[in-house]
């Protein structure tokens, strides 16, 4: 399973981009999705440097493809108006953090991430996310949108 309730953090305590990534990575480490937190965080930040993954509409999708990832995962974190150098200049409220192993053979999870990316462009999906207040509700939204 790409995402489960353990991988949903509502709310995230940290208030900065780097802090949010660290905090979410800590959770990923604790449930065994990554083997090396520092290496994973470095990969994600390196990706952020190329250009911000805050794609507008208050959503960011930081992602890292590195050997530190033991099992592909998707995390959801609810944050409060974090500055993410977004393309539209707006702060971020939703963070979907993605981890993929460097040598990933199958493509099923990539298909799901591709689908998630497409869903994010839909107003309806974003408002459903905003209305969800706990992990179970987020899971329900993802299920409803065929992402689980």
């Amino acid at each position: 399973m790409l995402i489960n309730e353990e991988l949903i953090v509502i709310p995230v305590q940290q208030k900065t981009k780097e802090g949010v990534i660290e905090e979410l990575a800590e959770v990923a480490l604790s449930v065994g999705r990554i083997a090396d937190k520092a290496q994973y965080v470095a990969a994600v930040l390196k990706r952020e440097e190329e250009y911000s993954t805050a794609v507008g509409f208050h959503v960011a999708i930081p992602h890292g493809k590195t050997d530190a990832v033991t099992e592909p995962f998707l995390m959801y974190g609810r944050v409060e108006k974090v500055d993410w150098n977004a393309l539209d200049g707006e702060p971020v409220d939703h963070v979907f953090m993605i981890g993929v192993p460097e040598k990933e053979a199958g493509s099923t999870h990539l298909q799901i991430l591709a689908k998630l990316s497409r869903r994010l462009m839909k107003e309806e999906f974003r408002s459903e996310l905003t209305e969800a207040t706990n992990a179970q509700a987020i899971i329900d939204v993802l299920k409803k949108n065929e992402l689980l």
Binding site: R47, T53, V55, I61, H63, K65, I98, V100, L110, L113, A114, K115, L116, S117, R118, L120, M121
Partner: peptide, 8 residues
């Protein structure tokens, strides 16, 4: 990376 932005 071809994970998200391509599809968005």
């Amino acid at each position: 990376t071809g994970i998200a932005h391509t599809y968005m």
